[in-house]
Nucleic acid binder design. Structure first.
Length: 501
RNA sequence: GGUCGGGUGGCCGAGUGGUUAGGCAGAGGUCUGCAAAACCUUGUACGGCGGUUCGAAUCCGUUCCCGACCUCCA
């Protein structure tokens, strides 16, 4: 059986077998947020996608160092040599806050949201402002290697020269430097500090209104966007590492320039595999604040938005994200969320049923056993094929009727060996909790529900008595009132169970 | 305008040169005191137009539409 992991590499635009630089160890860098506003739902999708990838790499037995930065300086709203302002500096100025207050506030919010979506924290979460020295050193290396030049205290990366001397530039994004040249030749007339429009700032001299400033050999200023990722990935993962990830929108210019900086500074391309998560749409269009086609995570949780009919739980949304492949766009609609929520509950219910199953006496591997065994193996194979969560889920959902069928007695439990049943239990639990990172939201109180369980047991018994006496009024009243309390009774062959939601 | 990626059944969403994705919704049935849950069965599909092929939704060309990034304009 083929146990290799295949990953789609944006650099080669095809699936490749994943081979870490050092067997059993994986270094993964993912571009984190710029913390100047509340985290965007689309960002959440990207980080959930990489959370699954992180979890799965660990599940396969790798020791993973997962570095996800926080960009808290340098990300401009426009071009460095125009009138652009740093996003955080601007926010701080408008709100009359210290820039670090802005950074702390939105970092906290980001972390809260990541926790709500049940993503694992990265191994290291470096900040750009905490690595000014490393960035200055990298600028110096780039200058020393002839790929950077200073103009009026700012330092620019010489993209044109770099592209001429290296094969690297444009490889990732498909940009051709000549096209960039041709497209923008007119701009050369502008009073620009740049020698070429494709050049970009790696150190920016701070104008008087700029609130974030550090001493450097060139000026009192701040590092350019892109540079923080080059410097910090090198610091924590080395000049070469395994995986670099981020949102698709970062491919150009951010990631292209990152590669240029790394090559320009040390002569080697940083990551072996580049992974890009695709965008989240809403109602078939991009989310956009200006035309109202947008929704925040919190609006999703509260249902307070004209775009949705009800509130959705974080796990229902996480499940919704799992239903699409990370490299595809995902269209968020109310109907799709309704469907995902139901599917999520069905899966979790099935798991609960499964974990309660015991092997039948005298069970032997029959046809059912073989089918189940095969589906489990297929599910794992789907994950190894570029983390294909929708296909993995499809296999799990093919197992659901089997689980329910055994429980209900439609399927012959004797055909399922104890060994395969154990394998199935372990696989379901691993997929749901360990790999997909889902949580049970339907259990009351999580852990401390013995009182609730006891109460429900009593109520169920009282209803059973009423039913035995054909007292339908009482039994239906119990059922209806509980339903209003969001508790659902499920009558099965061997008694009644209940769930919340 | 440039580069790249898409257009799949009522909705979301996989995938493949000839064979079932899966979920949700819909229809029928089993079970039930009636329901719900669960189980069984089930329909409609691959944007338009050409071409390659014995055969294409899957490959090629073209056109329309959508998205990302860049650029231009505002």
């Amino acid at each position: 059986m083929n146990n290799k992991l295949y990953i789609h590499n944006s650099l080669s635009r095809q699936k490749e077998e994943f081979k870490p630089l050092e067997d059993g160890y994986v270094g993964m860098y993912v571009c984190g947020p710029t913390v100047y506003s509340d985290v965007h739902l689309g960002n959440c999708r990207t980080f959930v996608s990489f959370d699954i990838i992180y979890r799965y790499l660990m599940f396969l037995g790798n020791k993973v160092r997962y570095v996800r930065n926080i960009t808290d300086v340098g990300h401009l709203e426009g071009d460095a040599d125009s009138d652009a302002e740093d996003k955080i500096s601007k926010k701080a100025r408008l709100e009359r806050l210290e820039p670090m207050e802005v950074v702390q506030h939105y970092s906290n919010g980001f972390h809260d949201m990541m926790r709500i979506f049940n993503t694992l924290p990265p191994s290291i979460e470096p900040r750009a402002t905490g690595h000014i020295i490393e960035q200055i050193e990298m600028v110096q290396s780039i200058i020393d290697n002839g790929y950077g030049y200073e103009k009026n205290g700012s330092v620019y990366f010489n993209t044109a020269k770099f592209a001429q001397e290296n094969d690297e530039y444009g490889k990732l994004s498909g940009r051709v430097i000549d096209d960039l040249l041709a497209e923008s030749r007119d701009n050369l007339k502008n009073q620009s500090e740049k020698e070429h429009p494709a050049d970009f700032a790696i150190w920016i001299k701070a104008d008087p209104r700029h609130l974030m400033r550090w001493n450097s050999p060139w000026s009192v200023g701040f590092p350019g966007w892109h540079l923080e990722c080059s410097a910090m990935s090198t610091k924590y993962l080395g000049q070469k590492f395994d995986i670099h990830g981020g949102g698709n929108d970062l491919k150009f210019p951010h990631h292209e320039n990152e590669i240029a900086q790394n090559v320009g500074a040390c002569g080697c391309s940083p990551a072996q595999y580049w992974l890009h998560a695709n965008m989240l749409l809403m109602n078939g269009r991009k989310m956009s604040k200006s035309d109202g086609n947008t929704i925040t995570p919190n609006q999703l949780f509260t249902g307070d938005s004209p775009h949705i009919s009800k509130a959705y739980s974080p796990m229902a949304i996480r499940f919704f994200m799992l239903q699409a492949h990370y490299r595809s766009t995902l269209d968020l609609t109310d109907d799709a969320l309704l469907g995902a929520e139901k599917a999520y509950r069905r899966l979790m219910e099935a798991n609960k049923v499964l974990q309660g199953l015991a092997a039948a006496k005298g069970a032997q591997a029959g046809e059912l056993d073989q089918e189940i065994d095969q589906l489990i193996d297929q599910a794992f194979a789907e994950m190894r094929d570029d983390f294909n969560t929708p296909k993995t889920l499809a296999r799990l959902f093919e197992l659901v009727p089997k689980i329910n069928g055994i429980k209900a007695g439609h399927l012959d439990a004797k055909e399922l060996s104890a060994e395969t049943l154990e394998k199935l239990k372990k696989a379901f639990s691993d997929f749901i909790y360990v790999i997909f990172g889902l949580k049970d939201e339907m259990d009351a109180g999580d852990g401390d529900n013995s009182a609730m369980d006891g109460l429900m047991q009593l109520i169920i018994e009282m209803r059973a008595d009423a039913r035995a006496n054909k007292d339908w009024g009482t039994s239906d009243k119990i059922r209806d009132v509980l339903k209003e309390l969001d508790i659902q009774l499920k009558d099965g062959k061997d008694g009644t169970s209940w769930t919340i939601g």
